[in-house]
């Protein structure tokens, strides 16, 4: 076992008296794609925000390449749930803002322009460079959000329910895009989801969280499916079905949502 690339060790956080996370420890290898799944309100976003540096853990800490994480930075780019593109900038300008900030000193103007175009091409958004966010669909906005995050060349890509607000067909398209990107770029990814199929399809390991308050990691499931994966072929694959059943069992038998119980 090699040294972990990203190390989350005994992280806990509380807001006032409300203990949201407790004793969360997780080691992530370089190039791994991890899905975090759990019922809503258990603290998934909070955990992601701690890794992003947007929140400070009350106890424990996060190490990235042996360096402690204590502030946000482009080496941990985030794809936010509600796209969070700046509505007064065009698609290209949104990505450009990130690229100018991250590579302003190391790349020439022309290089940065090509970089932006290339990343938007990776997510099939080259046709909408001059459109504004309110002129494109929800799926396209998420594509641009992914391009913006990728354009920062992050060490870890953080995604907070990136496709949660999309319809099933658009979501499937975006999942395929993300799988394709992962095949090409081999990023280290931490993705939150509440969709069991999405977790099994995309990830190398699935982290299942218990319900809050004081949520922690309940179980980690390795998904031993070969890549590239094909959603149609997998539907009847026994390994896929077994992984899916394991996650469902965790979520709906052993850790039912408190509000649903």
């Amino acid at each position: 076992m090699t040294k972990p690339y990203l190390q989350i060790s005994t992280v806990g956080i509380q807001f006032g008296l409300n203990v949201v996370l407790q004793n969360v420890s997780l080691d992530i290898q370089r190039g791994e794609f991890l899905a975090i799944i759990g019922h809503s309100g258990c603290g998934k976003s909070t955990l992601l925000n701690i890794v992003a540096g947007l929140l400070q853990a009350t106890t424990g800490g996060v190490l990235l390449e042996d360096k402690e994480v204590n502030e946000p930075g482009p080496d941990r780019a985030v794809v936010f749930q509600n796209h969070s593109l700046l509505p007064w900038l065009t698609v290209e300008e949104n990505v450009r803002l990130a690229v100018d900030k991250v590579f302003g000193k190391t790349k020439s103007r022309a290089e940065r322009r090509d970089w932006v175009r290339h990343k938007l091409d990776l997510v099939n958004m080259s046709h909408a460079l001059v459109r504004r966010p309110n002129e494109i669909s929800g799926g396209m906005k998420q594509r641009v959000g992914i391009a913006r995050a990728l354009a920062m060349e992050p060490k870890v890509l953080l995604m907070d329910e990136p496709f949660g607000a999309l319809d099933a067909l658009t979501r499937a398209q975006l999942q395929d895009t993300v799988m394709g990107l992962q095949q090409k770029l081999n990023n280290t990814v931490l993705m939150i989801t509440h969709d069991v199929d999405e977790a099994v399809l995309l990830s190398d390991r699935i982290v299942m969280m218990t319900n809050g308050p004081a949520a922690t990691i309940g179980e980690v499931l390795t998904v031993p499916l070969a890549r590239p994966r094909d959603r149609l072929a997998l539907a009847s694959d026994p390994t896929y079905v077994a992984c899916r059943a394991a996650v469902l069992q965790f979520l709906y038998e052993r850790h039912r949502h408190p509000a649903a119980a």
Partner: peptide, 19 residues
Amino acid sequence: DYRNVAAVLRLNHLEFFFK
């Protein structure tokens, strides 16, 4: 969300104000 974007990009005060 916009504040988070600015934080991740590490915009300084001036950039945050204008952008």
